[in-house]
Amino acid sequence: MFTESFTPHFSDTDALGHINNTKVPIWFEGARTPVFRLFTPTLDTANWPLILAKIDVSFEAQMYYGETMEVRTAISRIGGSSFDVYQELWQNGQRVASGTAVMVHFDFKQQKSAVIPENIRQLLTEHLVESSPDAS
């Protein structure tokens, strides 16, 4: 599992003083960088082998400005050419959001999905969770 902590900016809030719901997918995408590095260590977009097929986000509690956030990222499924990245957002010891991104290993020259190489599959497996990470 990968973890990343940060403090939300004032500009991340909405008119009600909570964290704006549009920020969570952006934070989740940023926290997927260690997963991207498994495929492209230099993050060279000229050799990028991934596309995003689907995301879903569940909001579980209110989030606030000025309080540290932690994103937890794990792999929850590995298929032939696709895999699921499961993520949780925590604040003050409480899970406040969770979501899954379906990523596809993609050959841009052939414009089709490609089998995940065995060496990368092994790296993904190191971060595989049987179900959503423990809510503790």
Rank of each mutant, 00 (worst) to 15 (best):
I116C: 05
P49S: 01
D44K: 02
I55Y: 05
Q62C: 07
I19C: 07
S76K: 14
T125Q: 15
I75T: 04
N20H: 05
S58E: 15
S132I: 15
F6R: 11
M103Q: 15
H127C: 05
F108C: 04
I116L: 06
V71D: 02
I120M: 04
R95P: 10
M69Q: 11
N119W: 10
M69H: 10
G17N: 02
Q111P: 01
I120S: 03
R95G: 12
K23F: 09
L43A: 00
Q122S: 11
E67S: 13
S11A: 11
E67L: 13
F36Q: 02
F36P: 01
S82K: 08
N47P: 11
E29W: 09
G66A: 01
I78H: 04
N92T: 14
V115A: 13
S98T: 10
S58A: 13
D56A: 10
L43N: 09
I120A: 03
E60A: 06
A74H: 11
L16Y: 15
L89E: 10
P8I: 02
R72F: 06
A114M: 02
P133M: 02
K54S: 07
N92V: 12
L52E: 07
Q110P: 07
E70F: 08
M1R: 11
K23E: 15
Q111S: 04
A101E: 03
I120H: 07
D14I: 05
V71S: 09
H18Q: 02
R72A: 12
A46L: 12
G30Y: 13
I116E: 02
S11D: 11
E70P: 10
G99W: 02
F83H: 09
D12W: 06
A114P: 03
R95H: 05
S76P: 05
A135K: 15
T7G: 10
G79I: 08
P41A: 00
F10S: 07
D44Q: 00
L43R: 00
D12M: 01
L38T: 03
A31D: 09
T45R: 13
F2T: 04
A61I: 01
R77S: 07
S76C: 11
Q94C: 13
H105I: 00
T40S: 06
S132P: 15
E118A: 14
S98F: 08
S131G: 12
R95K: 13
E29P: 06
E88V: 12
V57T: 15
Q110N: 13
R95Y: 06
G66F: 02
E70A: 13
F36W: 08
D44S: 00
P49L: 01
E88R: 12
A31I: 04
A114F: 02
A53W: 09
